[in-house]
Nucleic acid binder design. Structure first.
Lengths: 278, 278
DNA sequence: GCCTGTGAACAGTTTCACAGCT
DNA sequence: AGCTGTGAAACTGTTCACAGGC
């Protein structure tokens, strides 16, 4: 190895891996905490521990930003905070609108970490006339009719959707038409947007299901949690492959499909994500 | 903690890739919608469009579960719903506790998709005595002092933390000590947990920062106008007709670190943001 | 012909281990 | 000595393209 020509691009190559970008906020948070404690420098090892990643990964991540550390010493906390903030675009102000002011929308509006960094809640929007004018987190809720005007007047490019699933796509279309190019979607729906618009989603139900998957696996091993694991009725389902020992318990009966609680998916309307009274 | 090399037991279970597991809930949701409309079968192409992924990926994902489709025809909706539910462990009942009943905790408690599948909110816990006894989503809030008893009595193995960041680790420790082995963390903190405990986190602030990063990029390229891009930014139309079917853009997802030593996962998937010349 | 299932190519990410600076 | 920065290896995930059954 050590093939000569260690000439590096000198400047950050036009592309920080997505996985790295996703970790920068984490490093930033850890660094901010250090900064508040007036810690001047950190080693990759210490910072990695604080961020919950391993040091090699952290160093690799930072290497995509440039060489901001000092060999034999570590990284200058303040400097790194600045560099990462800049890289993430947090040195500028990002007006954000939150659409759908139910419990979730209110929680988001009140979320501190929100305003602390470059983000500023420019407006809260809800379709319920009864909500109009009501103050939430110190901001008066505005009606959906004003959506386009709000986006335009405030130069909003990031929108947060916290409406019921049924309203999400429509709200999304309006946001995009009005100029929003980044959307954070909390509604349990797949949004379709034109090219150039970024959508990230946060889906409670999906996270829980992923946990359940792993939880189920654990139960198969040993020392199960105390719980009542369904009294396990052997399921003797056709075993697909010669899969190794996999927990096979589980009841053949699944949640009633038409129970009282609707779990409407992206149906034409109505679903219950937690927001919107109506 | 020991020096790395504590590679996880390599769970010899029939390995379903983590990325696939993260998408199963998405397929399940799309399938449930089809099921409600009494659609008997779907092709990988149709289902993929509904779930917002590409068909090859979907087929590959399903191939890890077994061969549940019929060549020349497609997949039987009901059968697939059952198989995926089973794989995710949703055919059994998962009592869940939510700790921290503020706006967010209340939103979660009211979240429909929560109870609709195997999940059942077994208890709501809050440290504020003023909250004790108050009904939220039809369930009386209990005091933190009862935490251990609640976990044990209900056989809870999944806990949701929606407390302020400062209380999260402590709550986490108590949950784990009481027997919880899967945690969904909404507090903006890195939780450290012993081996064997799964932690997934949902962090609003991180998602926004990732969006800001991409948003900043977009703004910077407007002037440069490399050969790519420059494409239809002129969407600005009310009707999303143009987009929709074709290469559903979509956005990246999130990835996250691990907590504590160097165990677990904590990163859903990552996916299709790229520029892919079609 | 239609559509699934999958090996193989490709792309992205993590980890290793060490060169090189301080 | 200590610690960063980084090629290269190892691994994970995605896409291609077509074999094979309906």
């Amino acid at each position: 190895m050590a093939t000569g020509r260690t000439h590096r691009p000198a400047t950050r190559s036009r592309g920080i891996p997505e996985a790295t970008v996703a970790r920068l906020p984490l490093y930033l948070r850890a660094l901010t905490a250090l900064s508040e404690r007036s810690v001047p420098t950190v080693s990759s090892e210490e910072l990695a521990a604080a961020a919950g990643v391993n040091s090699a990964k952290l160093r690799k991540d930072f290497s995509y930003l440039g060489s901001y550390g000092t060999r034999g010493v570590g990284y200058d906390v303040e400097y790194l905070v600045y560099q990462i903030s800049r890289e993430l675009g947090l040195t500028q102000d990002w007006p954000v609108v939150i659409v759908g002011i139910g419990n979730l929308g209110a929680a988001l509006a009140n979320y501190g970490g929100f305003a602390s960094r470059g983000f500023r809640v420019a407006a809260l929007i809800d379709a319920d006339p009864a909500m109009t004018g009501k103050p939430v987190a110190g901001i008066a809720v505005q009606h959906t009719d004003e959506l386009e005007k709000i986006i335009t007047d405030n130069g909003v490019s990031i929108g947060v959707i916290a409406t019921p699933a049924g309203a999400a796509q429509q709200v999304c279309d309006r946001l995009v038409a009005a100029g929003v190019t980044s959307i954070l979607n909390f509604a349990p729906t797949v949004l379709s947007v034109p090219d150039g618009v970024d959508v990230r989603k946060v889906d409670l139900s999906i996270e829980l299901q992923i946990l359940a998957f792993h939880e189920q696996r654990k139960a198969g091993e040993e020392t199960v949690a105390p719980d009542e694991v369904a009294s396990a009725q052997a399921a003797a389902q056709d075993t697909p492959g010669a899969a190794a020992a996999a927990p096979a318990p589980l009841a053949p009966h699944r949640a009633a499909p038409a129970a009282g609680t609707d779990n409407g998916r992206q149906g034409p309307d109505g679903d219950v994500p937690a927001v919107m009274p109506a």
